[in-house]
Simulated scan of single mutants.
Amino acid sequence: MRTPIYIVLLVLAGHAFGAPSLEQMLGFLKQFGRDISYPANIEAAKSINYTGFSEGRHIVGRVDVTGTFIGRELNTEYIFGLFSGLATGASTSTPLVGIPLNQTIIDLVIENNLMIVTTRRDFNFTVAVVPTVWQVKFLFNDEGIVTQYDAIVYRASALFANIWPRLRKHLIKELGLPHHTSQTMAIKIRAARDICSQHEEYCLGPNKQFESKEACMRFVLHKIPLGEIWQAGQNTTLCRYIHTPMLPLRPAVHCPHVGPTGGDMCFDHSYETLLENPFPEPFAALPNNLTLAGLAGQL
C-alpha cells in the first residue's frame, strides 16, 4: 500500500518544538512597541541585554538599511541604543535619522512561532514629525523569546528625500553655514561634528581611531561619501553617524565602527553579499507542522 504524500511530509517534519503561547507573543509585541519609543528606549538601551531577545549569540537581527547584528548585546544597542543616543547624545538638536515616538499596528500575522507585523510609527526629525512604515518578522522559541528578526523600512529612500531638504535649511541656521551650502554638505557637517566630538570623548587610549578631532573631521567630510539611506551599513558618513550613539555603551566594540576602517560594520558590501541570508532558520510557519525541507519536492 502506498503511503499518502501528506503523511510522509508529516513524518519528515519530525517532532516540532513547543510553540510559544499567543499571550507570550502578543505580550512581547506590546512591550517591544513601548520600549523602542522615546523615552522608554533610554532604559532599554542601558540594559545592554534586552530580555525579549534570546541570550548570548542566540539572536540574529537584520534591518534592511543598516545590516545584520548577532548577539543580544549588539541587537539591544542598535535597536534601542541608536534612537535613545540620538535623543540624549551629541545630536539632540537635530537627529538626522529621527527619534521614534509611537506605534500603530497595521497588519499582524501570527502562526506557530512566527509573527509578522506591519506598523506605522511617527519619527521626530526636529523640523517635522514624519510617519514611517515598518514590517518586522519575528521568530520565537518555545518560551516566547525572540531568536531572530528581519525588519524593513518601507520607502526609506523616499522618506529621506522628503525630510533632508527641510533639514538642510534648519542645519544651515543651526551650524552658522553660508546660505548656499548644499544639502549633502550641511548634513555631512552635522554628522561629522557629532561623530568626531563623541569619538574624542569616548574613544581613548587603545580605542582611539584618529590622531585628532581635526583629522577625524577631514576624514568624515572629505574621504568618504555621505551615503544614501540604503548605504547606512556601508563605508559612509551615514553609517558612522548611526554607530556614534553606541560609543558610550561599549567603546572597545564600537570605536572601530566610526574610524577609518569602519571595523566590522561600516565597510562596502557587494550587491551579492547584501542578499546573503544570515538566519539559521527560515521564517516559516506551515500548517500541521510541515517544514520547507519537507515540502521541497512539492514546490
Rank of each mutant, 00 (worst) to 15 (best):
C266V: 02
V133M: 14
Y149F: 11
A191S: 11
Q31W: 01
T237V: 15
L238T: 03
I187A: 11
Q209Y: 07
L10Q: 15
D64K: 11
Y202K: 05
A13K: 12
K169G: 13
T237N: 04
L10T: 13
L204M: 09
V258H: 03
M265K: 07
G18T: 10
T3I: 14
I7A: 12
V8L: 14
I105D: 12
R121L: 00
V136C: 03
C239L: 07
F279V: 07
Q103H: 05
L299G: 04
V63Y: 01
L171R: 09
S21G: 15
A293G: 10
H180V: 07
R190T: 04
A90H: 14
H257R: 05
I105W: 04
I70F: 04
G18R: 05
T88A: 03
W134C: 01
S21N: 08
L247I: 07
T88R: 04
G52N: 05
G233Y: 04
T68R: 05
S54F: 00
N289V: 10
A252F: 03
L22P: 01
A156C: 01
H222T: 06
Q231H: 13
F140A: 05
I116P: 09
A293H: 13
H199Y: 08
L86M: 12
N235E: 13
L159D: 15
V63E: 12
I163L: 10
L29K: 04
F160V: 13
N112G: 01
G259L: 02
L12M: 15
V220S: 04
L175Y: 11
Q231P: 09
H243N: 12
Y241G: 02
G262N: 02
G259A: 02
H269S: 03
P95W: 13
T94C: 14
L295D: 12
R166K: 14
D107C: 00
E23S: 08
A156N: 13
S197Y: 01
A151H: 12
Y202M: 04
C255Y: 08
W134H: 14
I7F: 10
D64V: 09
G27M: 03
E281S: 12
S47L: 11
L74N: 10
K213A: 09
F219K: 02
I59C: 10
P278T: 02
A191L: 12
L299S: 10
L226C: 07
H170V: 01
T181E: 14
S47C: 00
N277Q: 09
T76Q: 05
G81T: 03
R240E: 14
A284C: 05
T104F: 03
T244M: 08
G233P: 06
G294M: 08
A161M: 07
R121D: 06
A44P: 03
T88C: 01
K169S: 15
V153F: 06
P278I: 03
A158E: 12
P248Q: 07
A252M: 02
H180Y: 07
P178H: 07
M185H: 12
Y149G: 09
S270R: 04
G14A: 12
Q103L: 09
Y149L: 13
P4D: 15
T92R: 15
T119G: 13
S21V: 08
I145Q: 06
R240V: 09
I5R: 13
L22W: 11
W134E: 11
P245Q: 05
Y202R: 04
G144W: 00
T244F: 10
A296M: 15
L86T: 00
L96E: 14
